[in-house]
């Protein structure tokens, strides 16, 4: 399945776009997404940390992704 990945902050700069498409196998997990993203965008590995959000909630590495999920890359936040 193809999933759109939203990007914010420095992740948007690294991707060169606010949204990219990633091809995933069925039952792919958040860990799988991070691995694939880091293969394609090695600069992600230089960040202090980053999280994946699924449907507007921080996701755990073992969470699985479904076809209509909204997935986003959350680099270190710095609001306030």
């Amino acid at each position: 399945m193809n999933i759109n990945i939203l990007a914010f902050g420095i992740a948007k700069d690294i991707f060169g776009s606010p949204v990219i498409e990633l091809e995933l196998t069925n039952n792919a997990t958040v860990s799988n997404i991070k691995y694939l993203l880091e293969q394609r965008y090695p600069r992600l590995k230089q960040l202090s940390s980053y999280m994946i959000a699924v449907n507007n909630e921080y996701a755990l590495p073992e969470d699985t992704i479904h076809h209509h999920d909204e997935v986003a890359v959350i680099p270190p936040v710095s609001g306030g």
Partner: peptide
């Protein structure tokens, strides 16, 4: 999930990113 970019005279930095 809110991000701040600091713009200096000679460049810009996403705060806390690295």
């Amino acid at each position: 999930p809110i991000w701040k970019k600091e713009i200096f005279e000679d460049g810009e930095v996403w705060v806390a990113a690295h």
